[in-house]
């Protein structure tokens, strides 16, 4: 009923901004209808809430962590979870909870920057390949070649050449996930470039690049957004695997993957050193995937059948 009232209020010329926004939000054709659909999905919105909390934790890590992540206290080596040390301590007496909090920084930073990097590069390649059939053959063979390498192995090889550093992890993983995005954008570009509106745009003298940006990319945006969320999840998983193997971020930086690895030799005495960081890793990736599923359903409700 509130919505109806707002709708009536919104129909008047002198309506407030509030009223108008409400009016637009009840029509299915609204640009932001998918946000409402997403938030109505309780699994997706709970996951989104969890991710918002994780981002806040990462940003305000120094305020949340009880002690510095590198603070060594030999008196409390390998002590179990307690009221002082919520997640226990590791073999050097460092507070696991503080390290988990700081570990969120690396994971989320890598996840988001890799997504941005591979999306920019991948969309560009995909657009060009889909739009110009002559370039397509070449670009697709390069993509095929890149995809022949198992992602983690290619990332390890690039890391071996560049050396351990956060920015190198970002570069390596951005390269690894370019094919993922490029394939998707190429597919939608091939489909869209046959549409009448692209032909019309060309007929009125629009250049190729504006056509690609305005009509083709914008029409592939919803599957692209869904894919982007999955790339964030892949990248976080891959960064954790690299750090677990010691081929990622330098070992002095606390990362979830590195912590799981560091705790493994003492699993019998101190399970908490591996299990807590691993659980946060799992929960974060799970939440991103569930938001991705939710976005896909919101953009295309038919996909919910499967």
């Amino acid at each position: 009923m509130v919505l109806t009232d707002a709708a009536i209020a919104g129909s008047g010329k002198s309506s407030t901004k509030m009223g108008r926004l409400r009016l637009s939000s009840i029509t299915p054709a609204s640009k932001y209808y998918w946000i409402r659909l997403l938030l109505e999905n309780w699994v997706a919105s709970a996951s989104l809430a969890f991710l918002v909390v994780m981002v806040l934790v990462a940003v305000f890590a120094p305020l949340i962590a009880p002690v510095e992540p590198d603070f060594v206290n030999p008196l409390v080596r390998l002590s179990g979870p307690s009221s002082d040390y919520w997640f226990g301590t590791d073999e050097l007496g460092r507070d696991i909870f503080s390290r988990v909090v700081y570990g969120a920084r690396v994971s989320l930073l890598v996840g988001i920057t890799v997504m941005v990097g591979s999306t920019i590069l991948g969309s560009l390649l995909g657009l060009i390949a889909g739009f110009y059939p002559r370039v397509d053959v070449l670009v697709m063979r390069v993509i095929d070649g890149l995809e022949a390498f198992p992602g983690i192995l290619l990332a390890i090889a690039i890391m071996a050449a560049f050396g351990a550093a956060v920015q190198n992890v970002i570069i390596a993983l951005s390269v690894v996930y370019v094919p993922n995005i490029a394939r998707l954008v190429r597919g939608t570009t091939l489909m869209n470039s046959r549409e009448l509106y692209v032909e019309s745009a060309r007929a009125i003298g629009m250049r190729d690049f504006p056509i690609m940006r305005k009509y083709i990319l914008m029409n592939s945006i919803s599957p692209l957004i869904v894919q982007c969320t999955f790339v964030i999840a892949f990248a976080i998983l891959a960064e954790a695997s690299l750090s677990f193997l010691g081929a990622g971020v330098p070992p002095d930086v606390p990362t979830w993957g590195g912590m799981v690895s560091a705790g493994q030799p003492r699993l019998q005495q101190a399970w908490w050193a591996s299990v807590f960081p691993g659980a946060f890793l799992f929960a974060t990736i799970l939440a991103i995937n569930l938001v991705g599923d939710g976005l896909r359903d919101a953009f295309d409700p038919r996909s919910r059948e499967r």
Binding site: V260, V275, L281, L286, N289
Partner: peptide
């Protein structure tokens, strides 16, 4: 399938070790 897609292989491996090697002692770690 949803949790399988989200759990890192190395973490799942460590949970298996914890259960079957450390706690139950059935399998070598």
């Amino acid at each position: 399938s949803i949790s399988g897609a989200a759990i890192p292989g190395f973490f799942f491996g460590i949970l298996l070790i914890l259960l079957f090697a450390v706690v139950l002692g059935w399998l070598p770690s």
